[in-house]
Design a protein around this nucleic acid. Structure first.
Lengths: 186, 186
DNA sequence: TACTTGGTTCAAGGAGTCTTAAACTAAGAA
DNA sequence: TTCTTAGTTTAAGACTCCTTGAACCAAGTA
């Protein structure tokens, strides 16, 4: 493999939770592993680690605690929580003074949603530009085949989007039933 | 939007093909637009730009020409072509001395394949780690609900993978028929 | 043999992203 | 009002990934 910005089998990511923190080895393992997976799908690893921590702990936690357990700075936690909340990956209780957070269990649904949203802006722009290029190519007497190819590239651009549309048209489900649903389709 | 590592609607990527190069405006637009889309899906923008150039030109091109048209260094083109060839996104004719390349038209299929491959390494490791964590949690008398949650996270990890499996189980198709297939399902 | 051309490799530099730390705002308590 | 705590913002530094450019290899030619 030449280029490996991603998914190298060989090098396990080496982010560690400070040894001082009060969580168990298996908790740490779980949190980091999930962080890697989420990180792989375009989010920050720490987004995944925070969600995973909350999901595993099954109870509301406050920023200060998350900060300490995961060994992050105050500012980092603040920003990460804002992201997660906006995406509805975690739910904040803002009525209490030290605000608390809990994990949203419909994580897969959320990921798809954010994924789709993320692509929307780019896709819109791409569509516009390629349609423009198509017009100009016509004026330029480009061959029908070339025009067809521009069209195909436009389709390519919308390809994944359609996929994600398909996905998110499913009802809200929790993680495991969502998987089951797909297992049976395969 | 707080965090925007990706897909901001506002800021169009600003990579330019040198004005000196002998391609038309609409070609340049197309190439860059496709580059952005491909780049968005985890590849390098230049992977997308090269494929797009070859696809649009409909003829074999040699490294030197690609280098000149896209304004890349010799080394960069060499490395990028190796990636693309390995992924079968382009096909090289190595019999000629100045080697030439043509675009593979089954690009969507290729993308899915690479995507899947890319995830394979990480997934394997994650699976192992989470199963390990699950065992340790059991020994640690963790509640059934916690164990269940670890399981759910494992499912989450395999979630996208299953999707890509589903996708790539389809027969090889060219770009547009693949899209059509999906359009009808939606 | 030496020269040329096509292609590869890799260390160094650059570009872009992420995290931190410190300054700042807001709100409740004394 | 001042102090404390919770939370936000942001410039600067750290870190990562990408590209470059020079050195290198291989093969063909004179």
């Amino acid at each position: 493999m030449r280029s490996k910005p991603w998914g190298s089998t060989s090098t396990p990511p080496k982010d560690s939770i400070p040894a001082s923190s009060a969580i168990k080895t298996w908790e740490r393992k779980t949190i980091n592993a999930v962080g890697d997976v989420i990180g792989f799908w375009g989010f920050k690893k720490n987004h995944g680690r925070i969600w995973s921590l909350l999901y595993l702990k099954e109870r509301p936690m406050r920023s200060a605690e998350i900060q300490k357990v995961l060994g992050l700075s105050k500012g980092a936690v603040s920003m990460l929580m804002q992201d997660l909340e906006q995406w509805k990956v975690v739910v904040a209780n803002k009525d209490q003074k030290p605000r608390t957070y809990v994990a949203n269990e419909h994580i897969a649904q959320m990921i798809i949603g954010v994924f789709r949203q993320r692509e929307a802006g780019l896709l819109k722009r791409t569509k516009r530009i390629l349609e423009e290029a198509h017009r100009e190519a016509q004026q330029d007497q480009a061959s029908p085949k070339k025009l067809q190819r521009i069209q195909s590239m436009l389709n390519l651009a919308t390809f994944m989007n359609q996929f994600l549309n398909m996905l998110s048209s499913l009802n809200p489900l929790n993680v495991q039933t969502l998987i089951q649903k797909f297992s049976t389709k395969t």
